Simulated scan of single mutants.
Amino acid sequence: MSGTTTAGPMFSEERSGEVVAASFENTPDPRLKQVLTSLAHHLHAFVKDVELTEEEWETAVAFLTRTGQMCDDVRQEFILLSDVLGVSMLVETINHRTGGVSTESTVLGPFHMVESPPRAPGADIALASKGPPCLVTGRVTGPDGEPVPAALVDVWQANEEGFYDVQQPGVQPETNLRGLFTADDDGRFWFRSIVPRYYPIPDDGPVGELLAATGRHPNRPAHVHFIVTAAGYAPVTTHLFVEGSPYIDSDAVFGVKESLIREFPLVDDPERAARAGLANPFHTVHFDVTLQREPRSAP
């Protein structure tokens, strides 16, 4: 037709990814352009690979809609979806490569939704929990083994029944099993708690339906969450896993890394228990954290 120009190839099954990717050619932000262009190619290749039906696509849209509708102030269903698909762990791992010289990272998880209260060294974070008592010790160092004084060690965990405080308002005290500790001049920290229990991620929503439909369980092995930060160093978000915990080899969110598993041996020592302020016998665990230095900005 006279006066009509064509900027590029028209949409077709063969060219679909190419045509949609080309529509992002004038995106001002180069990173956004890169991400959307790659997404278009991969997404269209996936649809072609499985030959997605209209009914399947409608089901997928409805699933994502319900996933959004499940989100509220204390629950993030989209994070759960990212977790069970392994995307959270992959993004975390790509962005925190350690080179084998610092503590490995793992997923934040959906329950770090309140600020942990500052607590004195050695404080008991188990405000109303009846699990096996545990003494947790550790040291924060830099990549050359230097101590990191005043590092902030943020910890949180589930109780002996596998629930976080935010899941049981009115049952658990607020900020139960949470604490923000400051490392001493030698980078050391310690606190009292209980041995955590394995637990299921929330599975009463769309993500739970996905797990059930694929024959997967919703459980995570027992662990304590850590976020460690210090001036001049890159922060690390990680877990301390209990060796021998159920599901240690089949974490629903793929968060387990071998370097983060520790024994929690039982200690029968009344004098040491008295010094630590714990009932005897009690469990112990030591977890050292090595931070990477923040890269310096170019002058």
Rank of each mutant, 00 (worst) to 15 (best):
S2T: 10
T5Y: 13
A7T: 08
P9H: 10
S12I: 05
S12C: 10
E14D: 14
R15V: 06
R15K: 12
S16M: 12
G17Q: 02
E18A: 13
V20H: 05
A21S: 12
A22G: 15
A22D: 02
V35K: 06
H42M: 12
H44I: 05
V47N: 13
K48Q: 14
E51M: 07
W57A: 15
E58P: 00
V61A: 15
A62W: 08
V74H: 07
R75N: 12
R75D: 07
S88V: 03
L90S: 12
E92R: 07
G100Y: 04
V101E: 09
V107F: 06
V107A: 12
L108F: 12
P110S: 14
P110R: 05
F111K: 04
P118C: 13
L127D: 06
L127Y: 09
A128Q: 13
S129C: 15
V140E: 00
P143M: 13
P143Y: 08
P147S: 05
P147D: 01
A150G: 09
A151K: 04
W156S: 10
N159R: 04
E160R: 02
E161Y: 04
G162Y: 00
F163G: 05
D165K: 00
Q167W: 04
Q172I: 01
N176Y: 00
G179P: 02
L180A: 11
D184F: 09
D184K: 04
F189G: 04
F189Y: 15
F189S: 03
R192N: 14
S193K: 00
Y199H: 14
P200N: 03
P200R: 00
D203R: 03
V207R: 01
G208F: 04
L210D: 01
A213N: 11
T214E: 09
R216F: 11
H217P: 04
P218S: 10
P221C: 13
H225A: 13
Y233D: 02
A234V: 07
E243V: 00
P246F: 10
P246E: 06
D249P: 00
R262F: 07
E263G: 07
E263C: 08
P265C: 13
P270M: 11
R272D: 14
A279Q: 07
V285S: 06
V289H: 02
E294I: 05
S297C: 09
P299K: 06
